[in-house]
Design a protein around this nucleic acid. Structure first.
Lengths: 339, 339
DNA sequence: GTGAAAGCGCTAACAG
DNA sequence: CTGTTAGCGCTTTCAC
């Protein structure tokens, strides 16, 4: 069932049918009705490829996804993808997920841009210095960044307010009387990690506490590195009374280490984990105090809306930048300072 | 830079250039060289959309992915995706990953088929009774199943020999002197789980051991359910001396339970986990005896080859069905029966 | 309001 | 071996 057949069956020209279907003004209401009805009846579906060719756009937006190691299994990312497809579907837009190796990532962007396979991109996992963003800005390709890079003033993005989240955690611990607060963090080229660490430091500053460098440690973005880092810290004489972990993988590892060592959470050591513990985690049912993103589920939808606005092209930049606020979820893993 | 421009710059017709580029025989070697060179020089990239329209195919194969709960985060799946894109890229084929809710899954297939967005599908996570496969067979849409369903004789598939893997595990334990062997399994509508359980039962039968129903338990496809099931089993008087877990999520939970209870692995209780433990797992460095898929990494590549053969259409069905053999990886979590 | 006709960029008969 | 021509299915000027 193609346009021609549909038109024939209605004794109309393809032109008219096309216009009726695409909601143009210059077609009589009656005709529009007839056409819409017949289209439904006969199960007409426009061929998106032909459509793309004629319109000169792909009707798809791309996500380039490095398919290596733990990277991918990020469940939050997949939530975003789900929200994105939902938000894009009503506009007849597809999501093309292209995989790439880390080193070949830029090549993949080039290939998609050059081959006109997509009209724009979602750039995920932004780095503080992000060559992908540089490239897309240079080429004038529309995109929406998921997370800000260092010069985020120049382009559209959606992000969580990582700095605010970390400050929230500090304030909570300070209000519980803690002054000896440690911090475990992921590699600082991840912008989220950098922002969270800044938030942590600012939070301390605001509370008039001087950070103890010894308790600020890189703990990676994995359970095992979090575990090892925590163990090492526990072996030392001079311990903090409270701890913030900037990501939930390392956080899970750290909590595991505490449990294994029999350190009682919230009493001997208070711990707050950014993003909480992932679902289906084996943490003996401990309810961890966490910084969470209440709008997490909607992130994808917001992003779909934003990228659509980006494609439309006539919105001021400030409407295309959105910061989502985190909140504190109180669990049982923190408590008043006992010192 | 389009074909016309390229042809003009070479003083050739578009036809010739097109043929040269697509490796047709009837073009002189010299011309082919010239064309290839110019194309590279000028950075010519064919427009895949125009190509698709002309060829009447989308040059893409689809994977419909239910984007809910734990489902997605399956890292093995993402390995497969990586292998697939690699294997498809040389043939200029893309992988279109469409997300869908569980209930809307079939709709998504229809939309993609109808809209001619893809030429074929990879159907992952097959069930024993699989409506998606029914649908695609009915519609005559080419596809490759990743995993067999009940009537797998009728279509192309790639699968691991789950039955053989489970038997391998049984044989290992039997050879260590175990007779009291338990089995934890995932929901039996997953074909892999069904096959593994059958393999387990056959293995016992072959060894002349009558299975003790009491030790065969559903343990789900998650860490927490595996943990709970294991704990429950440990609380009972009549324990098996060895245990096989049919998936690595529940397996991780079970091992955690054993560690928490101080049961020494390989002495008090031997355990073998199907698929081993996932990367970045917190299992105190225990090297678990596992049934593994040595060709795991290549699965995606194999599947790319198979789906391409499917699309070609002229291969006998038996060439389009591939069973990958598992192997046993001996760790420290099993040992001789001490009873 | 409606239709005829010209493309979008590429491939594939069919001639030469 | 190479070029001419006619589409693929849709949108969109431009007339009527």
């Amino acid at each position: 069932m193609d346009l021609k057949a549909l038109a024939a069956s209605l004794n109309l020209s393809m032109t008219t049918v096309s216009r009726a279907l695409n909601g143009y003004s210059d077609v009589s209401e009656k005709t529009r009705q007839r056409v819409a009805e017949a289209a439904k009846e006969l199960g007409y579906q426009p061929n998106p490829i032909a459509r793309s060719l004629a319109l000169g756009r792909a009707n798809a937006i791309g996500i380039v996804h490095p398919l290596e190691d733990g990277d991918v299994a990020d469940p939050r990312f997949l939530d975003v993808v789900a929200g994105l497809t939902e938000g894009l579907a009503p506009k007849q837009m597809d999501l093309l997920i292209a995989s790439a190796t880390h080193k070949g990532e830029l090549d993949t962007y080039e290939r998609l841009v050059h081959g006109k396979r997509v009209d724009g991109f979602i750039v995920a996992r932004t780095k503080r210095q992000d060559e992908r963003i540089e490239y897309l800005l240079d080429e004038g390709v529309p995109f929406l960044a998921y997370g800000r890079s260092d010069d985020c003033a120049r382009y559209p993005w959606f992000d969580f307010d990582n700095e605010a989240g970390a400050r929230l955690a500090v304030e909570r611990l300070v209000s519980l009387g803690h002054k000896r607060i440690g911090y475990l963090y992921a590699a600082q080229h991840y912008n989220f990690a950098y922002q969270r660490r800044m938030g942590f430091l600012h939070g301390l500053e605001q509370a008039g506490i001087t950070p103890n460098e010894h308790w600020l440690r890189p703990a990676g973005l994995s359970r095992n590195s979090g575990y090892a880092t925590m163990l090492a810290m526990l072996d030392e004489a001079d311990r903090p009374t409270a701890l913030i972990v900037d990501n939930n993988l390392a956080g899970e590892g750290a909590v595991r280490a505490l449990l294994d060592r029999g350190v009682s959470l919230g009493r001997e050591l208070s711990i707050i984990i950014y993003d909480g513990s992932p679902p289906d985690t084996l943490l003996a049912g401990v309810n961890i105090t966490s910084v969470i993103q209440p709008t997490q589920q909607n992130a994808g939808q917001h992003m779909a809306r934003l990228i659509r606005m980006v494609m439309e092209g006539n919105h001021p930049l400030e409407d295309l930048q959105m910061l989502s606020q985190p909140a504190l979820q109180i669990g049982e893993s923190d408590g008043p300072c006992m010192d």
